[in-house]
Structure formats: C-alpha cells, structure tokens
Design a protein around this nucleic acid. Structure first.
Lengths: 186, 186
DNA sequence: TGGGTCATGTAACCTGTTACATGATTAG
DNA sequence: CTAATCATGTAACAGGTTACATGACCCA
C-alpha cells in the first residue's frame, strides 16, 4: 500500500526521495504514517519491480540526488491498485482497542480519557484546518483541479471524523457521569 | 498491541487459544483484524515474557488443549498499556489512500466507488447491528456490567462511523454530480 | 460422505519501527 | 552560532500476511 502511495505521488511528476518525503508529510501522512527509512526502502523495491526509473544527478553545493520517475509499468500498476477492491483492508485502531478494556480503570480516569481523546486521536492529527491551507497551495502545483478535488475529499473526511469523534467522546462522558451519580460508591 | 488485546481477553478468565480466537472474532476483530497464526505466535511471546501461564490438558474425544491464564505480571502489563498514551498510534487507512488518487479514474467510476463504499469499508464490516446482539450475549458471560459498557462504547463508535461514512460518500457524490453537469465533456 | 467445530501450530515472506549515520549549506 | 534544510541511507527487530499441515468427532 505504501508502495502505491509513493507511486501515486510520482505520477504527479518526477521527484527525489526527499521530495516524496515532504509531499507525503503534507498529504498522505494524515492517514498513513511512514518513516523516512521505510520510504527509501520501498523506493528500492519499486525499482526492482520496474515501476520506477532512477537517474543519478551529481550536485556541487548540495548532496547528489536520485531523480525518480514512474514507468509505464508503474502507471499500469498504480491504476490496477486504485481500481482493486478496498474491502479486505487492514483495520487496526489502537484507540478502540484501549477503549474496549477501559473497564480496568476508574470512572473518573475514563472521563479524563475521553476528555483528552479528541485532541490526540484524529487522522488529521496536525490539525485539519491546517491541512486545508496546505492542500490549497499544492492545488497550484498539481495544476489539475480535478485531481486536487480528491485530496480535498480526504480532508473533508478528516473534518467529519474529528466532529464525530468529539460527539462520541461527549456521549461516553455523559453515560459515565450518569453511572457516577447512580452509584456514587464506584 | 495485539499482545495486549489477548492479555485483556485472558483477564476476563482462563481460555484456550481457540477460545481467544472465537471471542476475538466477535469483539476486537471489528477494529483489529488478526490471523489465527498470529494469535498463536503472540501467545508464545506472552509466555516468554511471563505474562501468561500455560497448562496442558489432555483430552480424549477432542485434541489436547493448552489452558492459558494471565499472571500478576501480565495484569500489571495490561494496566500499564491501558494507561499509556494513545497519541502516536499507527494511522493507516487504505481507503483514504485510494480516494486520494482517484483522480486517475473517470467521474462516473468514482461516483460508483463512493456509492459502494459504505457497504465495504467500516470498522464493523460484518454489520454493526449484528455486533450489538453479540455483545449482549457476552454481557452475561463477563458478569461485570461496567466492563461490558466499554465494549458497547466501541460499538457505538462503529455505528457513528458508519453514519458518518455514508454522509461523506453522499457529499462526495453530490460534488461529482455537480462537476459532471458543469462540464459534460468529462 | 462432506462440511463445520475443536485444537494446534510452522515457515516464508512482507511491512513497519527504532536507532543510527553523515555532512555541507543557508537563514535567522 | 545554531537550527533547519537538503539528501542519502543501513541494520536489527517487531509485527502482520499467506500458505500450508494435521486429525478426530459430530451433524445432516
């Protein structure tokens, strides 16, 4: 999957590993966290698969760099992946996992837990508002308004998710407060 | 994280690997998918760490089984994990990753994509309504109504997520329809 | 007689995380 | 003078996926 994210970015135009890293940070990282080391490793595999070409460029006042460009095979693979079924995708939420077992903690601890959650757990953890402005800048770079649209869709998702999470936390807190007042013993 | 999920289940009472598997399927699997093979491997590690004890039980009309029970060290580890910070948790959404690059497809293909999504991509992919009834059955097993409460919280999350996802897809479709009518060329 | 349940795993591989490593240039 | 930016990775380990393997009992 990370492979395909990188391939997708290279489809916008040639880039170095470093540039991929920065674009990734501003866009995909909201819903897919990846370390620099992993990006470079995946780039090696993309080349092995023949999905990208690498051109070494010597520089003087800067370290040398490797310019990466997507191949026809890479573009074909990207499209194949985009159109493939989303269904059996890896679901994994550490946050829900912890919530599930929160019965081990006191009600007050749990009220605090749900109070703090919305600030921490969100796909747009850097703040979705910020993501909106960043994407607008890239809109000029991509130059294809229709492609920028889907970027905006992912940000809309982030905004709606944030709102939903806050609501959910409020509901949980409300129920915990009720229980607290029913049995003040706990 | 999977380690801790298993530890949490064993904290409800002794179980075999097989039972963990079935309880897992009905509860945690909604937001954390794991293969049987992985569960057995993690059980080995839990024992190596001294977090569980294993008792071999010979059976006649059934295969022998290993009864697992959580140790004091395991309980301590479970609590440590529950109270640890949720913040830097691994975010990864294949669905948003694909959405991001959907600009490569036609508007009609994308309308179809968003129309089909709500049925596929949901933390409670087996249907959240079903999860509600299953959890009610376990409520009798757990026998501690306060613990079952947090299970219900995770299901509430699933229901709210489902609703939000449907709304988001409708919004995306609406925007795509607008664009389609503005430039019928595409 | 065929499929589901009970019950256990191993092996190979792929993906993700953490820690480490280097070093010049440039902007404040 | 110091921190950020540019630019590249390696190594070891942890966690997740896929495929395979075994075998009896019970119900329809």
């Amino acid at each position: 999957m990370l492979k395909h994210g990188i391939l997708g970015l290279l489809n916008y135009g040639d880039m170095t590993g470093y540039e991929i890293m920065t674009v990734f940070r501003d866009s995909l990282s909201h819903f897919w966290v990846a370390q620099t080391s992993q990006i470079y490793r995946e780039l090696q595999k993309l080349e092995e698969n023949g999905w990208i070409n690498v051109t070494h460029i010597a520089q003087e006042s800067r370290p040398d760099k490797n310019m990466l460009s997507i191949t026809d095979a890479g573009r074909a693979e990207l499209l194949r992946w985009i159109k493939s079924d989303t269904a059996n995708s890896a679901v994994r939420s550490p946050m829900l996992m912890k919530t599930f077992f929160r019965g081990e903690c006191s009600i007050d601890e749990n009220i605090a837990f749900f109070r703090d959650l919305p600030g921490k757990e969100t796909p747009f953890h850097n703040g979705s508002e910020n993501a909106v402005t960043v994407s607008s800048q890239y809109e000029k770079v991509i130059e294809e308004p229709l492609k920028a649209l889907y970027w905006k869709f992912t940000i809309d998702f982030g905004l709606m998710y944030d709102r939903m999470l806050r609501e959910w936390c409020e509901n949980c807190i409300r129920k915990l407060e009720e229980i607290k007042h029913e049995n003040p013993a706990d």
